[in-house]
Design a protein around this nucleic acid. Sequence first.
DNA 1: ACATCGATCTACT
DNA 2: GTAGATCGATGTA
Length: 210
Amino acid sequence: MNKSHAISCPDISGLKPLPRDFYLQDTIEAAKALVGKLLVHCSPEGIISGRIVETEAYLRDDPACHASRGMTQRNRVMFGPPGHAYVYFTYGMHFCMNAVTQPEGIAEAVLIRALQPLEGMELMRRNRKGARDRDLCSGPGKLTQALGIIRGHNGVDLTDSCLIIADDGEKQGELVQATRIGIKEAADKPWRFYSRRYAEWVSRVDREYR
DNA sequence: ACATCGATCTACT
DNA sequence: GTAGATCGATGTA
């Protein structure tokens, strides 16, 4: 499955990845808690990282969730153990990355929608030629391109691989709750979260809930 | 085997 | 605001 170069890379920037238990909490809570954390890719070219500023939750019985109609070739990683990356290809040209939550057999995940670029900005600019710095990672397809996340990362362990999520202790700031973007089914579910503090980096600012 | 369209992005009007 | 790119997952036959 992860046959490609999918890389092993110990000790990413000396950061300690979030423990697997983190991904066992309620998926909506995990989506909130992931805002403010770091996504770090130890790419073949060097370390590229950003702060997660926007997420969306996808639940097992949610018609907008890829896994809601059962396991397929594409979504099988979502049915696996928590703390792994579910990366899928869409619109013929983009990859999107999720963090799988819930125990094996229960398919839920958190889509990472935007980052504040941190380390490796030169690599990001090279990967996203023509984009303004503000738009290097301001969308799910943009951030995977900026970080070099591809099909081969589908299924990698976010607690121990070239791709990790870690906590550097920074405060996430006030959370804004809004509806998810680009879906038709369950479009009313307010399961998108972003940080007001980092709002300049999100994919878009919408009508707020609560 | 075929048709549809997507958890998107960019460029252009 | 709207269209085009581009391909593979999925549903129907």
